[in-house]
Write a protein that binds this DNA or RNA. Structure first.
Lengths: 154, 154
DNA sequence: GGGGGTTGGTTCGGGTTCGAACAACTGGGT
DNA sequence: ACCCAGTTGTTCGAACCCGAACCAACCCCC
């Protein structure tokens, strides 16, 4: 019951910094990907997940679960990617309802072309400017946070 | 030069954790505010900024600059808040073009009612589960990151 | 005072996102 | 064989957000 109704100074400023960094970084990344490769950040993420999967293929649900978007949002993005020729949809052999999204050759090519610029920006915004110790502490916090959040996300 | 085109293992996992935590936390916060107070996260942020300002008033530009939304986005949100009776728009006495957004009594009341639940959730998601040292390191990283980003945001 | 560059805020059009509802299908228990 | 709860992916309506275009007003410097 001694839970205060407001956050204390440190908590508040960390929280604000978290929101602000997220917003700014997302905006810059979005911008860079759009200018450089004509991809939105979500689309890029979808391509990355597919590229990480065996044969560059994943079920829609696995894609949505591992990613940061809802089921309907994913349907939309995959439709966009398919229209652009970067992704193909196949039926799932073991489940008639299932849909498998699969990277096309062009999808691979676009992703390979986009990755270096994206990596450079992430490095510039997110990695450089932090000392090794700072980065380590920061990463440790993120990882702990994510572990705890997985409980909530269930 | 010897800049690799991809992120190394630690960088990548930290980056993914950053994106994932941001996405999950934002979704949960959004949900909670909507259910609890009928506010979107952006709307809540606007109210908080106003409440922090002297007399609960701010110029539109200051609001947009300090916040995470574009000018047009802010116009939209303030219109919503005005429709809901939480914010009033006044003309700016020193600049005819200017518009001052100002918290109404009801705006104060709604914010006071919403704050404890929001603070509790932020505490639960963001603060608890990290040891004091972890949190300190994490906050230090965030702050350094934000400082560096301000350059880019200019 | 009276231009020219800058700023403040809104409007507009398009793209993106979400949740709820939906239909088709699955799998396990009986 | 059958039923029923749970899953899968899409569709639909609405909300949201952004950048570009825009007009009006400011500033400042000659």
């Amino acid at each position: 019951m001694d839970e205060p109704a407001w956050l204390d100074e440190h908590e508040l400023s960390a929280w604000q910094a978290f929101l602000a960094t997220g917003a700014i970084i997302n905006r810059l990344v979005e911008q860079q990907l759009k200018d450089d490769s004509g991809l939105s950040h979500s689309q890029y993420e979808v391509l990355v997940r597919l590229a990480d999967a065996p044969d560059g293929e994943l079920r829609m649900t696995e894609l949505a679960g591992a990613a940061f978007t809802s089921k309907s949002g994913l349907t939309y993005q995959v439709a966009q990617l398919e229209k652009a020729g970067l992704v193909r949809r196949r039926a799932c052999p073991t489940d008639v309802r299932g849909v498998i999204a699969s990277l096309t050759d062009e999808g691979w090519a676009v992703l390979r072309a986009a990755a270096p610029g994206h990596a450079a920006l992430v490095r510039e915004l997110f990695v450089s400017g932090l000392s090794r110790e700072e980065f380590a502490g920061f990463a440790a916090g993120l990882s702990a946070l994510l572990g705890r959040l997985s409980v909530h996300a269930g």
